[in-house]
Design a protein around this nucleic acid. Structure first.
Lengths: 109, 109
DNA sequence: ATTCTTTATCGTAATATTGCAATATTAAAT
DNA sequence: ATTTAATATTGCAATATTACGATAAAGAAT
């Protein structure tokens, strides 16, 4: 026991959970926000922005990448990271749909 | 080590991360979707809908509640759960803002 | 060629999450 | 008062995550 039972849920549910999970850590939220704040992709820089050690940040970047939230291109001896809009759009449309679904309800609570 | 360093991030970042983390598990996504699908709040029922044991579901419900995603009212000997729209709206507006921020960029990747 | 810079990986300790059986709690039904 | 039904809590094992020091890898700069 201890592992998530992904096989019992739909692909869509797993997909949303994966993206949400990647954003389930403040450092990763901060990374995404920083990528948006600066007006272009980032080569380096992230390590100086966050109060975490370099290996920790590298690990967080990897998770964001695995979840499809960011893309990374090798650019000389540094790596150019930027947001993958598809994942963000997926989340946005998902929550928009949910919000819309909520408005029709007569909530009893 | 091992614990998230929340004190190094802004309240907003921690707040988004907390809500996202709560949705970072397919069972909890499924619970939210089920609460939306049925046209009212749920008293009971959730345990029969999901392929997990009752204590596990109870635990997931607790996490969704702690994150502010659902509300629960005691209703006789069962509990009436429903979605807390505020949390969903918070996420939706957050991702909308991010999406909007992305459109202005000239992404290099 | 050597050094510097940037990023990744390995190893490991601390902590958190997931899942469930067993048990407790609480109110309804009998 | 007992039983039933719905939910929560406890305790525990399995697994995952978080964080970082040490080290590796690979291109840039000297």
């Amino acid at each position: 026991m201890g592992a998530t039972k992904t096989e019992n849920f739909t692909d869509k549910q797993n997909s949303i959970a994966t993206i949400a999970k990647a954003l389930g850590h403040p450092a990763r939220v901060a990374i995404i926000e920083y990528l948006i704040k600066v007006d272009t992709c980032i080569c380096g820089d992230i390590v100086n922005e966050l109060p975490l050690a370099q290996p920790t940040i590298s690990q967080h970047l990897k998770e964001l990448k695995n979840a499809g939230l960011i893309k990374g291109n090798i650019e000389g001896n540094s790596i150019c990271y930027c947001i993958d809009e598809k994942a963000i759009q997926k989340l946005q449309s998902y929550f928009s749909k949910i919000s819309a679904g909520l408005e029709k309800k007569n909530n009893c609570c």
